[in-house]
């Protein structure tokens, strides 16, 4: 088995392990911390998929910029909306 294929398989196993972790943790009575944990695990999965499966890490800077722009504007959307909603009294 060549090295690249081995890398893909390793990432797939990691993704399944993260899925198992998020599923298992959801049975614990964590309250709001459960949200933070499941979101953190989703972000870790996303990072693996984007960098390894979608090869963004090895892409040209221009492509990374295009991908990063989506994330950047999404962050603004989320941050400003939640900054309003979560701080209402």
């Amino acid at each position: 088995m060549d090295r690249r294929l081995k890398g893909l398989l390793t990432v797939w196993l990691l993704l399944l392990a993260l899925l198992g972790a998020t599923f298992g943790l959801s049975f614990l009575p964590w309250g709001a911390w459960g949200n933070a944990a499941s979101l953190g695990i989703a972000a870790a999965k996303a990072a693996l998929i984007v960098t390894v499966f979608m090869r963004l890490g090895a892409s040209q800077p221009l492509v990374r910029l295009a991908a990063g722009a989506g994330l950047f504007w999404l962050t603004i959307l989320m941050a400003l909306t939640l900054a309003d909603v979560l701080t209402r009294v």
């Binding site: 892409s59 040209q60 989506g70």
Partner: peptide, 26 residues
């Protein structure tokens, strides 16, 4: 390390998809 125009175009398209699904997630 060069990207094809198709690859760049697809990432731009995916960025617009991020905005759509992102708004839905919000």
């Amino acid at each position: 390390t060069t990207a094809s125009p198709g690859q760049l175009g697809l990432w731009l398209f995916l960025s617009t998809e991020v905005m759509m699904f992102g708004a839905l997630l919000l």
